[in-house]
Design a protein around this nucleic acid. Structure first.
Lengths: 145, 145
DNA sequence: CACAATTAAATTGTGCACAACCTAACGGTG
DNA sequence: CACCGTTAGGTTGTGCACAATTTAATTGTG
């Protein structure tokens, strides 16, 4: 259909570009808040759970400590989160939002809904896409070729 | 459904994780070939078109020179591509595959089909997902909130 | 209790994504 | 021809993604 690129049939490429386009949609609002998209999704988990172990955060976001350690350090540097070693198990680090970090939750509360609307998908298409993506992630994660 | 994360309703997060899971599926084969996923998609365009201007490559992949310049430099360092300044317009740089780079095309020829099968999606689901992703990318790229 | 195996984070190193800036080349107009 | 605005790539700097290694704390077993 389009000009020949050798990429037509690659679902992976569509995922790759759609994902980047979508985070680009979040960028203006997140820039204004002074955070990045990965920082934002980490904050959402922290907001929701109150206090999270780094391991659990990583399991939820599918990110390892190599990504999360510096990311959380930057959030801590901005006074958005607080980190403390576990008292029972001193290996674990608990992350929670500071008062300043909690303020951000209110400021960004309408963001996902607002941007989902900007996509101009029907509820059916949105739901279909959402579930197919979940299936792809599940299968791809489970696969060990 | 899952444990509460504050991420349930975020299509963007599903895209973000599904995309990373999918490129992870490509990783073993690409590691064996000595290239990364972004290098692979760039090579696919180069294989298809024979010779490409950096600008056109960037338009196809939705990447700018800040990403492509070092990426192509690394591919050139591996003797997979060759870069030459345009004769008519010396600002443009043409990229093409070396013989060694062309060999890779054969070696990786069955990759997308093989991995698409690993996803275990019906043809209908695959097509639906593919087109919805295209719509999302199009809308998200066009939006300027 | 001592010690090996495991686990949690952090660190290091490579490469991508993207913004901001820079330089060279081109193209048109006076 | 000289100048100005535009275009093509490259460079720099920040932050993420991920593999591999390191360190410290914990757990299990003899």
């Amino acid at each position: 259909m389009d000009e020949a690129t050798g990429l037509e049939a690659m679902l992976c490429f569509e995922l790759y570009t759609a994902s980047r386009a979508m985070t680009g949609l979040y960028r203006p609002a997140l820039d204004a808040a002074g955070i990045t998209y990965p920082q934002y999704v980490a904050l959402r988990v922290i907001w929701q759970r109150g206090s999270v172990k780094v391991t659990d955060l990583g399991a939820t976001l599918h990110l390892d400590s190599g990504t999360l350690s510096p990311l959380l350090k930057r959030l801590e540097g901005q006074n958005l989160v607080h980190r403390t070693r576990g008292e029972d198990d001193k290996r674990t680090v608990w992350v929670s939002a500071t008062p300043e970090g909690m303020l951000l939750e209110q400021q960004l509360a309408d963001l996902p809904e607002r941007l989902a609307c900007a996509l101009d998908l029907s509820v059916e298409d949105f739901t279909t896409l959402y579930h197919l993506l979940g299936r792809v992630r599940g299968t791809a994660t489970a696969s060990n070729l």
